[in-house]
């Protein structure tokens, strides 16, 4: 039980309001201690909602959550009050896409990191400041003693994201959730942050769930990839398996759409149509309307997972028994 750092079983998330949105539909996922998993998907596929559910960040009144979520053996759904507070930031922390919004503009970055350390580790102020200094060094911020006294607006985008990572890791969480942390950054800065995260993961040994829409980014940081579509995982495997032997037609389409190694002027093998609106629970394979291989059986019921090996699964009825080549 405790071998699994994250264990999500049959998670379903619905948002209620003027209309109902079926954001996550029967999602099961596990992560071992020290593993890095990329949740890969397009907008609306439910990847960010999965992260927010893990941190209990969804608005309780408008969201209906079913299923079981355990992090390090703790039932996340049952947490409240003090226990929830120390779970957030202590056990699990998160890096967001826009560090400009996630950092508090009226406190220096040193004060923000120190506050988190004092709150979760019970350190005195001087000790907390020196931890903050140590963290800024670890994320390779030049002249850290000066940067401790800077406000977020005085830092560049890449620097702010480094501070965000320092803040998230200051309390040594077991699990780091990263929600598109490099999407807003320039290419030359993005690769720096990706490599930094990879090194820190190795150093601290925490589990990481990294949400991204960019396959190239997933390849750089993760050892496993779970591909999401319309609130479900459609394929999961090691990064190597997903890149070199994709089985789900959607995964194959995504890889083709990356344009890596495509001849100039050659017609792109685009996936037709657009993702579904999620206003109804799925009655068949959600990808069937866009799938070149779909038949009546695909629309008749939600496809179960086909296990292709240990921790290698595909939710497709038409999956080839042999690798495509």
């Amino acid at each position: 039980m405790t071998e699994k750092l994250v264990d999500i079983r049959n998670l379903t998330v619905r948002f209620k309001g003027a209309r109902t949105v079926y954001a996550i539909n029967d999602l099961s996922l596990s992560l071992k201690q020290g593993e890095t998993l990329a949740l890969l998907g397009e907008s609306g596929s439910g990847k960010s909602v999965t992260l927010k559910t893990l941190l209990r960040l969804l608005p309780p009144r408008r969201s209906e959550i079913e299923g079981e979520i355990r992090v390090n053996g703790t039932d996340v759904q049952a947490l409240s009050g003090k226990a929830l507070q120390s779970y957030r930031g202590g056990e699990v922390s998160m890096v967001f896409q826009d560090p400009g919004l996630a950092l508090d503009p009226v406190y220096t970055v040193g004060a923000q990191i120190a506050e988190a350390v004092m709150r979760h580790k019970g350190l005195r102020k001087e000790e907390a400041i020196s931890t903050a200094f140590d963290m800024l060094q670890r994320v390779h911020i030049p002249s850290p003693e000066r940067r401790l006294r800077n406000y977020p607006h005085e830092l560049s985008g890449g620097m702010r994201q480094r501070v965000m990572i320092a803040l998230a890791l200051a309390c040594r969480p077991r699990l780091l959730l990263a929600d598109e942390p490099t999407t807003a950054l320039d290419a030359t800065v993005q690769i720096q942050i990706l490599l930094l995260l990879r090194d820190l993961q190795r150093e601290f040994g925490m589990g990481v769930i990294f949400v991204t829409h960019d396959i190239g980014v997933a390849v750089e940081v993760s050892e496993r990839i779970a591909v999401m579509y319309a609130g479900r995982i459609v394929e999961e495997g090691t990064t190597h398996e997903i890149i070199n032997d994709p089985r789900h037609p959607y995964t194959r389409g995504l890889l083709a759409a990356n344009l890596h190694d495509i001849a100039r002027g050659e017609r792109l093998n685009a996936i037709p149509g657009a993702p579904p609106a999620l206003e109804e629970p799925p009655s068949g394979c959600s990808f069937a309307p866009r799938c070149p291989m779909a038949g009546p059986v695909c629309r008749a019921g939600v496809p179960d997972f086909v296990n292709l090996g240990p921790r290698r699964r595909v939710a497709c009825l038409r999956v080839d028994p042999v690798p495509a080549e």
Binding site: S156, G157, G158, L195, I215, V219
Partner: peptide
Amino acid sequence: LFSAMPSMDPDNRTKTPPLSGD
């Protein structure tokens, strides 16, 4: 700029960033 593109090859990932800083 070209070296900063993700590699797309899990066996041959980028080892060092081509530039430092913003």
